[in-house]
Amino acid sequence: MDSIRTFFSEYGALLAEKTWEHLYISFAALALGVIVAVPLGILLVRLPKIAGLVMGIAGIVQTFPSLAILAFFIPLLGIGKVPAIVALFLYSMLPILRNTYIGVKNVDPTLLEASRGMGMTTFQRTTRVELPLAVPVIMAGIRMSAVYLIGWATLASFIGGGGLGDFIFDGLNLFRPDLIIGGAVPVTLLAILLDLLLGKLEKAATPIGIRLERGEA
């Protein structure tokens, strides 16, 4: 107990700062991921010919070792938060892209026919029918992506992006288990917390009619 108290009195301020950095990097990457991947996913449903190709590429990107990607951006963007965010953004894309694509693609085709037959424009069909119905699946993708990102963001430390990774790598370099634990535990807690929060958000964003249909009201 004592050691924990000492740790906090010594590193408390720094921990708060690194946690903030960590969240900042993760959320920036996630926000970019959502902004790019959701529209891209919808677009791919409309372009079935290239959908397979794009999904394939996104899948391959996902298999690159994360450290390699981070390192790859150093010559392009230098070091610091920007390359870290860009690299993590690439990672965050796939779960969101895939879930958006599947979610929108799996909307009951009879509903699409009804909306076309009733005179909805493509835009109206997307925003009033496809997206609301795909929201649960898209949100699940975002949630998955967010949890991964919290973990991957520790690597940002390698290219000078900061975050809780700083604690962990300092601990490794200096052989200081307290620093390793002091960085790893908050990362885990953040991931769990975020998963819970986004789970709630996922439920709230699901249209009531759909929730009732599934008996979750």
Binding site: D108, S115, L133, G209
Partner: peptide
């Protein structure tokens, strides 16, 4: 336009 599968939007009242 009325279709066989009815096609009411489940997320709308």
């Amino acid at each position: 336009y009325v279709i066989q599968q009815i096609g009411l939007f489940p997320h709308m009242t």
